[in-house]
Design a protein around this nucleic acid. Structure first.
Lengths: 180, 180
DNA sequence: AAATACGTACAGAAAAAACTGTACGTACTG
DNA sequence: CAGTACGTACAGTTTTTTCTGTACGTATTT
């Protein structure tokens, strides 16, 4: 008993939880496991080391690591004298959380707001057009209300994301609870 | 030109954006379209009406609506004299947002915290065991630090979720900006 | 300049997920 | 108490996604 196996198992359990968790938000379990594996490494890893670690193809490592880069969950590291690309897991989970959701939320916000504004003005012109039938106008007016309040919600979400990005959220929910 | 087609197209664009957005968080586009379609309906819908609306099987509607129920994005509605089950989209997107992420985050939190606490105590016992090799102990100590701060992060996230559930978040980020 | 190392585009194979139709249990209806 | 309506479990099919191996472009070494 030198403890190596036990440590490995304990890590494995956590890696599993991490990847299942990430999977809840549409990230592949493989990508999650890669992040988890990198998280427990002391230093940065090369693609070949990842391939070794997870027993998967180098191609997969390449694409998976790119996904993690886009999510800012790993960073590329430069090290003197090393030719291979090196990647390291972002260790600060507050930051990871913020990046992850900021990226997704912003994408969703702009997607939805632009679609809604476009449709909103189209629908408005239906209401303004006297050749449009009345029952359609009624529906149109209902839709206008819905879209208006949906846009309002997205503006709120935008402000929420701002407070994440600026870290102001930590003034509202501090990282540590007050000692009593 | 009675405007019906134009209204339909304008809605379609928004439904598309909604479903693509939901898809970012691991929800099928079909399920997203179903929510979108329901969102624009005036009243609640039966499974058969949904099937009609989306041109899909009733089985799919049944399972999709169940997913939406679990996410609290739709609710079951009772209406006198109607035998079929009726479902209605939750119209308040603030609430939808809160429910959606609260559900997911809480699931992830408990998953991770319990895995981490278990592993943490296992790793601690490696450190305490004098038969464990030194280089393993060093690794173990690093892991303890990582897990400890990860758990701290999850406790923060838990408090954040609390503030969503209790609506206190709206004191920090108000629904409407102050009029100037 | 040839040889080697490295990362990734791309096409095909393998695996997973989404979707459908049938079948069946339950609950109403006449 | 038939007969009908309704929702969903389940098995099989279709579609999508993930994963791999090969091939190739670029960069580095000799």
């Amino acid at each position: 008993m030198n403890g190596e196996k036990e440590l490995e198992l304990a890590r494995e359990r956590v890696i599993d939880a991490i990847s299942k968790n990430m999977n809840l938000y549409g990230v592949t379990e493989s990508i999650g496991r890669l992040y988890g594996a990198m998280y427990f490494q002391e230093g940065p890893l090369t693609l070949d080391e990842m391939k070794e670690e997870l027993g998967m193809s180098k191609t997969s490592m390449s694409t998976s690591v790119r996904s993690l880069l886009e999510l800012k969950m790993v960073g590329k590291v430069w090290k003197k004298g090393v030719r291979k690309d090196l990647y390291q897991a972002e260790p600060d989970w507050y930051q990871t959380f913020i990046d992850f959701f900021t990226i997704k939320w912003r994408a969703g916000i702009s997607l939805n707001i632009s679609a809604m504004q476009k449709s909103l003005s189209e629908i408005q012109s239906l209401v303004d057009n006297e050749r449009v039938e009345n029952h359609v106008k009624n529906q149109a007016n209902l839709d206008i209300d819905k879209l208006t309040s949906a846009i309002e919600y997205y503006e709120w979400l935008n402000r929420l994301v701002d407070s994440f990005e600026s870290k102001e959220i930590f003034e509202f929910i501090p990282k540590k609870t007050e000692k009593s």
